[in-house]
Computed example of a mutant assay.
Amino acid sequence: MGFHTFPIDRADALEDPTRYRFCSREELIEMLDVGSDATVADLGSGTGFFTREVAPFVDTVYAVDVQAAMHERHREAGVAENVELLTTEVDSLPFDDSELDAAFSTMTHHEYATDEALLEIARVIRTGGRLVTVDWSASGTGADGPPVDERFGPNEAVNQLEEAGFTVERVHDRPETMAIVVRR
């Protein structure tokens, strides 16, 4: 598995509305299942495409990305008042234990899914909080997204999440992507 970051020179693709065919705002909000007072993190937020969709429904969103240049693109598109941009690796999140009500990751699990990163995510989500992972599936065709050999399959991702201390609520293996909801 080769971990990498999304090329900044292709960042315009992250703003393409056809991305909704892989995960809609409604689907993401429903899977997160948090209240308007929630504090959540978008792990691998990129240009903020999904951060902007979640922000109106929660109190605070931390847009976490390892690339400062992605945050610059997010600023150009507009950053909501309740969004804080954080440039950091997922395996060293600057949150207190159990600080987050939930976290989500859209099309980035394959970019950070080490044991250390998943344990770090578990550390910062409160007991009972959710992690929603929507990513390219190794069972997909590879027509969209990264090459299939850079992806995890649903069973592999579930095993990783369970080993980090999460309990699986549901798994959807779809034609090109997977959606996994787990609880801390």
Rank of each mutant, 00 (worst) to 15 (best):
T39Q: 11
T39S: 13
T39F: 13
V40G: 06
V40E: 08
V40A: 06
A41L: 08
D42M: 13
G44E: 12
G44Y: 11
G46V: 12
G46P: 09
G48P: 07
R52P: 04
A55T: 07
F57V: 02
F57P: 01
A63N: 06
D65W: 13
V66W: 04
V66Q: 14
V66T: 12
Q67L: 14
A68T: 08
M70R: 05
H74I: 02
E76Q: 14
E76P: 05
G78V: 03
V79K: 11
E81I: 00
N82P: 03
N82D: 09
V83N: 04
V83K: 07
L86N: 00
L86P: 00
T87N: 05
V90I: 15
L93D: 05
D97C: 00
S98T: 03
S98W: 04
E99D: 12
L100C: 00
L100A: 01
A102K: 02
A103V: 04
S105T: 14
T108Q: 02
T108N: 04
T108I: 01
H109M: 13
H110P: 03
H110D: 04
E111W: 00
Y112F: 15
Y112A: 10
T114D: 13
E116T: 15
A117K: 04
L118C: 11
L119E: 15
L119R: 15
E120A: 11
I121Y: 07
A122W: 04
R126Q: 11
R130D: 12
T133K: 03
T133S: 14
T133V: 15
D135V: 07
D135P: 09
W136F: 06
W136T: 00
S137L: 03
S137A: 13
A138S: 15
S139R: 06
S139A: 10
G140S: 08
T141Q: 05
A143F: 00
G145Q: 03
G145A: 03
G145N: 01
P147A: 14
P147E: 08
E150G: 02
R151T: 02
F152S: 05
G153S: 11
N155R: 15
E156M: 07
A157G: 01
